[in-house]
């Protein structure tokens, strides 16, 4: 968020504000009167409004408040859903900064894996908390490419990167809409689902078949193992989201390692219980 944001007085003239805008990087400005925020003056307002008008007669932007502790994905959801131009970030009932779509997109870009275009794991933590809080089951599917080190050594790292890109695209194309995919690191990927572990088995099997039938560059021999972990909801006792999800990811990861060695590249693990998670 931007902490040193510029506010404009409701009675300031547009021409005066245009002069201020020329010296700043901001595209939206909270319009204030008597220490109250009345609305948001957007760049569009400044372009289309007569320069003689005052700010209060030009502002058309919408705003909403968000707590400083909320995640950036929550902020993005609010901005997209409600056609909000600016989020005012509050801490102890005081506005401490502002967020716009431009600032958020820049920040969100840091949480996207550059090679595959998938999210990084922190997004999965956010979505898992959201699913659990809305009463859903969750399970984690952990995908691990077999012998990826061999592919890199035998065909080169550039080919290895292309393999990962195509694998990621294939996963994305074949996963249900209500699931969330991320690159966990290296040749490992995670899928968060709103189903229990046993319900995931059939669609993950189909997914693995679809990936195996895909022709990868230079006919590189490609296979992948998957481990599924999930559990039943048990109580409303509050637990740490990070710990709960880390445990699930770990169980799924170990299951995928066993799947490589033992049977058919897919193993389902039920870890017992998942308690309600507090965010």
């Amino acid at each position: 968020m931007v902490r040193n944001y510029i506010t404009v007085n409701a009675l300031w003239g547009i021409q005066h504000i245009q002069d201020i805008v020329c010296k700043s990087d901001m595209a939206c400005f909270p319009v204030m009167e008597d220490n109250r925020i009345l609305g948001i003056l957007t760049m569009k307002d400044l372009v289309k409004t007569h320069p003689n008008r005052i700010a209060i007669d030009a502002m058309s932007g919408n705003f909403a408040y968000i707590s400083e502790r909320e995640s950036i994905w929550k902020a993005k959801e609010i901005l997209d859903k409600k056609s909000i131009d600016m989020l005012l970030v509050k801490q102890n009932n005081e506005v401490v900064g502002v967020l716009t779509d431009q600032i958020l997109n820049y920040e969100l870009g840091k949480h996207v894996d550059l090679l595959t275009g998938l999210h990084k794991p922190d997004y999965i933590y956010y979505m898992a908390g959201k699913l659990l809080n809305s009463g859903n089951e969750i399970s984690i599917v952990f995908f691990d490419v077999n012998d990826f080190g061999y592919i890199n050594k035998e065909f080169g790292h550039a080919v290895g990167d292309r393999i990962l890109q195509e694998f990621a695209a294939s996963l994305k194309a074949n996963t249900p809409e209500e699931t969330y995919l991320c690159r966990f690191g290296g040749d490992e990927f995670i899928l968060l689902t709103p189903y229990n572990a046993l319900d995931c088995e059939s669609f993950v099997e189909k997914l693995l078949q679809a990936i195996r039938s895909h022709k990868f560059p230079q006919n590189v021999p490609f296979d992948v193992a998957a481990g599924i972990a999930g559990g039943r909801r048990r109580s409303t006792r509050k637990l740490d989201l990070f710990e709960t999800l880390s445990n699930l990811i770990n169980i799924a990861s170990l299951a995928s390692t066993r799947a490589k060695k033992e049977k058919g590249n897919l193993i389902v693990e039920c870890c017992g219980f998942i308690d309600e998670v507090a965010i």
Partner: peptide, 9 residues
């Protein structure tokens, strides 16, 4: 809509 004086003014 594009008058030099707005309704609030």
């Amino acid at each position: 809509k594009r008058a030099p004086i707005g309704p609030e003014a």
